[in-house]
Design a binder for these strands. Structure first.
Length: 351
DNA sequence: GTCCAGGAAC
DNA sequence: GTTCCTGGAC
């Protein structure tokens, strides 16, 4: 690390001491961070914003304060808490990892990158982040915020996705040997609060004089935008099958989209073959509404059908289908797509 | 309404 | 390279 690079990390650390965000997984003062909390937070923060994570994190820690308690939970409980947060394989991997940490590591999160990488759900970013933040061991952490900050600092004129190696090298150069956890979080907080994607607040930036993009008056154009790949759209059908105050719901397959989550019977949109849903074709149905929902790789238009179920139809329910009390749907694990559909139906039924 | 940001697994 | 979700900015 050259003298100039040390000056950058010193400025960032000084700024962090005054401006660190107060986040529930952070401890201040002399207390050492709790590796368990850092792990849970980093998994939740994958592809998910801080604001969305905070309430989920608080509930999670309240319910399972330690690895030991988490590994005794059922996956269904973890999915229920995760409901609405998205990317549900994270919950599955977290639950799986807790058992491994319990049996193989005596409930202590491993503290080397190579051991962390063996845990399901932990990739190169998360392993480095845990090393730095939980254990204050030197690691090069490159998350979404840091990619942007570093691209601007060093005026890297390439789209982020095509430039991982160069960004990693520059991040490595400015990463100090001491206070690594604070340094990493200073970059994250700077990216979140000051060096924002649009309208960066350069006047608040502690390293404005070191920023080559700013010096070139290009801070609003770095990192370069890459052309967006076009999203296709899909059409599906969801069925609100009602029997008095009950509605028919089921648990989705344990793989693929929205795996193991609860749902209204829905067909024609997820490229899955689920023979349990074949009975739907025979039902007499009426289209009552539709909604739109965005996934990463497609836009979904979901038509909503109402089926008034007659007792004498005597439907034999497939596995993992149940009649749920319409007034007590909270206990199920619905993804946001289903919450949106249910809300729409319930609102439409009000006069 | 549409776009965009945010990592891991396969 | 493709599949996994959501909330907030625009």
């Amino acid at each position: 690390m050259s003298k100039n690079q040390k000056i950058i990390s010193d400025k960032l650390l000084k700024w962090y001491d005054q401006n660190a965000r107060l986040l529930p997984w952070r401890l201040f003062g002399r207390a050492k961070p709790d590796p368990y909390k850092i792990w849970i937070s980093e998994i939740m923060l994958q592809q998910t914003t801080v604001q969305a994570v905070i309430p989920y994190f608080k509930l999670f820690i309240q319910k399972w304060p330690t690895v030991d308690q988490l590994c005794k939970s059922d996956l269904s409980e973890v999915l229920h808490l995760w409901s609405g947060l998205g990317y549900y394989s994270r919950a599955r991997n977290l639950h799986l990892s807790s058992s491994i940490i319990n049996s193989k590591y005596n409930n202590f999160l491993p503290s080397t990158e190579s051991e962390l990488l063996k845990l399901p759900g932990i990739g190169s970013y998360t392993a480095a982040a845990i090393m730095a933040i939980a254990f204050n061991k030197r690691a090069v952490v490159v998350d979404g915020n840091i990619k942007r900050v570093v691209s601007r600092l060093f005026f890297l004129e390439k789209p982020i996705k095509e430039n991982y190696r160069e960004i990693w090298d520059y991040t490595n150069c400015i990463t100090p040997n001491i206070r690594v956890g604070d340094f990493v979080q200073s970059l994250m907080d700077l990216g979140s609060e000051v060096c924002t994607p649009s309208k960066p607040r350069c006047y608040q930036c502690p390293v404005i004089n070191d920023c080559k993009a700013k010096n070139n008056k290009k801070e609003n154009f770095i990192p370069l935008k890459q052309r967006k790949l076009e999203k296709n759209s899909r059409n599906g059908s969801s069925f609100f099958i009602r029997k008095g105050q009950k509605v028919l719901i089921y648990k989705r397959l344990d793989h693929g989209l929205l795996a193991s989550l609860d749902a209204l019977p829905s067909i024609g949109w997820d490229n899955q073959v689920d023979h349990r849903l074949e009975f739907i074709k025979k039902l007499e149905k009426k289209k009552i509404s539709s909604i739109k929902h965005e996934f990463t790789h497609f836009t979904l238009k979901m038509d909503i059908y109402l089926v008034e179920y007659l007792e004498n139809e005597n439907l034999k329910l497939p596995k993992d289908f149940i009649w749920a009390d319409i007034n007590n749907l909270k206990k199920f694990s619905f993804p946001t797509l289903m919450q949106k559909i249910l809300k729409k139906i319930i609102n439409d039924q009000k006069p």
